[in-house]
Amino acid sequence: MLFSSIPGLPEVKQKILQAVKNDHLAHALLFHGPEGSPKLSMALALATYLHCENPQEEDACGICPSCQRMGKLIHPDTNFAIPVPGTKDDEDSNGSKTEKVDYIASFRTFVQQYPYGNVSDWIYHNNIEKKQLNISKAAAKQIIQTLSLKSFEGGFKVMLIWCPEFLNTSSANALLKIIEEPPAKTLFFLVTSHPDRLLTTILSRTQKIMIRAFSDEEIKTHLVRTELCSTEVAVQIAPLADGNMREAYHLVHDMKDANTALIRDWFRACFSLDINVIFKFTENFGSTDKEGQKSILLTGINVLREVLLDKSDVIDLRRSSEDDRDFIHKLGEFVLTEEKIMKMYTLLNEAHYHIERNANVKIMFADLSFQLARIMRAKSTA
């Protein structure tokens, strides 16, 4: 993983590189930021740079043996600790042995396939939906043992802990001393979207590196440059992703150019209270997978946002394409007041929340449609 392979965020890369050059790099770094930001990628890029045999001014060389091994995540001086299924303390499981799975090998594959993946993606990747994840005390002891060994290549040893919020109290406490006073040239990289869930004793021993979300332009440019979608589709996806590259990837697979047109037709059916069309939409919605359902609702939320901006004459903040703006303008001019927009916005957000929690989507969508119809058709108050 190279810094150049991460879209955008030039100021974050520069700050990290400057810390290395000025020898201001702390021995324990907390890479934190919103979901879908390149937290893990930044940590891996830094590890690659530190291991590189011929580092350049702005990045690792990418061609030396160390860089090649880091590209496959098999460098012997970069180790990983990750949440895996098991009891809170594996050594206290009453002697029962769980099936041995090489989750580190699985993690290497996972990172290659889902560089912006979250814990849910990790769970599905390993088919461990019904198992409790944690980083156990036994894993903490393994970390200490690993770091007690000398570096294979004489440089830095890096211990990357992905999702350290899964450290339970005993495992976190076991690591406190080595995090505070690690062996020479040993670095801890903690990568998380939830720093608020870490123990204060862990947080206080780290240097925080905030990894911001992507901008709309960075997402759009990346999607087009990597040929994941057309420019027209990228223009629609970027604002819906809201800085989350993971969400952008899902939307690429699930979102069609017709999504805004679908919302237009759905809103029209709700306004005219066309029962047959509404139930047809309900059937189609229920037959779509979860990510597709979420992308439709996100498109609806984005349409309402655009209507509100149009009504407020805040032209510079609009993200909709030229082809959709006539529909958006008419929706705001003839149907929706600001009060109605906010009510509909709340309903769509709640529906998105319930989809995440496995609601019956057909019942939910039918109810949502009739609630939207009630709002649209209500007489506006003066």
Rank of each mutant, 00 (worst) to 15 (best):
C61A: 10
I63G: 01
I63T: 13
P65H: 04
C67P: 07
R69F: 03
R69L: 13
M70T: 08
M70I: 04
M70F: 00
G71H: 03
G71R: 01
G71C: 02
K72D: 12
K72E: 14
K72H: 11
L73D: 06
L73T: 04
I74L: 05
I74H: 06
H75R: 03
H75L: 03
H75C: 04
D77I: 08
T78S: 09
N79A: 05
F80Q: 03
A81Q: 01
I82F: 02
V84K: 03
V84W: 00
V84E: 12
P85Y: 05
G86M: 05
G86V: 00
G86W: 00
T87L: 07
T87W: 00
D90C: 00
E91G: 03
E91A: 11
D92S: 14
S93V: 09
N94I: 05
N94P: 00
G95V: 08
S96A: 11
S96L: 11
T98I: 08
K100S: 12
V101M: 04
V101A: 01
D102S: 02
I104L: 06
S106N: 13
S106I: 00
R108P: 05
R108E: 05
R108D: 07
F110R: 00
F110V: 00
V111D: 13
Q112K: 15
Q113W: 05
Y114S: 14
Y114R: 13
Y114H: 15
P115G: 11
P115D: 11
P115I: 00
Y116M: 07
N118D: 15
D121Y: 10
D121N: 14
W122T: 05
W122E: 07
I123Q: 02
I123S: 09
Y124H: 09
Y124T: 00
N126F: 15
N126L: 15
N127R: 07
Q132L: 13
L133G: 12
N134A: 14
I135S: 04
A139N: 12
A140I: 10
K141Q: 14
Q142D: 15
I143F: 07
T146L: 14
S148I: 13
S148L: 13
S148Q: 15
S148V: 12
K150I: 03
K150R: 15
E153Y: 15
G154K: 13
G155E: 04
G155V: 11
F156V: 04
K157T: 02
K157E: 00
V158E: 00
M159T: 04
M159P: 11
M159Y: 10
L160C: 09
W162L: 01
W162S: 02
W162Q: 03
C163P: 01
C163N: 11
E165N: 08
E165Y: 04
F166P: 06
F166E: 02
L167T: 01
N168C: 07
N168Y: 07
N168V: 08
S170K: 13
A172T: 09
L175R: 06
K177R: 11
I179R: 10
E180L: 02
E180A: 03
E180N: 06
P182L: 05
P183A: 06
K185I: 01
K185N: 13
T186F: 09
T186A: 05
L187K: 12
F188L: 09
F189W: 10
L190C: 04
L190I: 07
L190S: 03
V191L: 02
P195K: 03
L198R: 09
L199Q: 11
T200A: 15
T201P: 06
I202L: 14
